[in-house]
Amino acid sequence: MDHNLQRYLNDHLAGSAGAIRLIDELATRQDDPAETAFFESLKAEVEGDQERLRHLLASAGLEESAALQATGKLTASASKLKLLWEGLKPGELGMFEALEMLTLGIQGKRLLWVMLMEIAPAYPEWDEIDFAELELEAIRQRDAMEERRILHGRESLIDSERRTATTSVAR
């Protein structure tokens, strides 16, 4: 069973590595300093989650998988190429899709914390970890990302003429 847990935690560790690369890219492409700060803060939080995952692995006597991390980085690079093709500036499809990927990834992280909270009694070495608090943090991150995803979805999926008509009807 520990093999499955090791694989599961390593999969999330690999996903976080890809997320950091994408967040970094998005931070550099923002025109609004507040948005740059948002992505830089999110990157720091995800880096903290990576360290937490490493601690969980180590404290349970499990190992980090370099192969899975390399695969995660390769997958992130391939995804980044596709997003760059679509465009990663505000209003471009790639930006919307990048935010959607991050929203899904953050939701996956939330589900990770929920599952680990469920199995934590079997791992007394994790007693000091507040998985409920980690879940709440993931929800906050997901909601903040979702706001951006919706905004950029409107900008990239509705042409300007229709967006003007939709905005005036919505008001």
Rank of each mutant, 00 (worst) to 15 (best):
H3R: 11
H3T: 13
L5D: 03
R7I: 12
Y8Q: 03
H12V: 01
L13G: 03
S16H: 13
G18A: 04
A19W: 00
R21Y: 07
L22H: 05
A27P: 02
T28F: 03
Q30F: 06
D31W: 04
D32F: 07
P33F: 05
T36E: 14
F38P: 00
F39P: 00
S41W: 01
S41T: 07
K43W: 02
A44S: 06
V46R: 05
G48E: 01
Q50N: 09
Q50I: 15
E51I: 05
E51Y: 09
A60Y: 08
A60E: 12
G61C: 05
E64Q: 14
E64D: 12
S65N: 04
A66K: 07
L68H: 11
Q69H: 11
T71R: 07
T71D: 13
G72D: 04
L74M: 09
T75I: 13
A76D: 03
A78G: 13
A78N: 10
L81T: 07
K82P: 05
L84S: 12
L84M: 12
E86H: 13
E86S: 11
E92N: 04
L93M: 12
M95A: 08
F96H: 15
A98K: 15
M101K: 11
T103F: 14
T103D: 07
L104R: 12
G105T: 10
Q107R: 10
K109G: 04
K109M: 09
L116T: 02
I119D: 10
A120Y: 02
W126M: 03
E128T: 12
I129G: 14
I129D: 05
D130W: 01
E133I: 01
L134S: 12
L136P: 02
E137A: 14
R140F: 15
D143C: 03
A144M: 02
E146Y: 15
I150F: 06
L151V: 10
H152R: 06
R154N: 11
R154Y: 12
E155I: 04
S156A: 14
L157T: 01
R162Y: 09
R162L: 10
T167D: 11
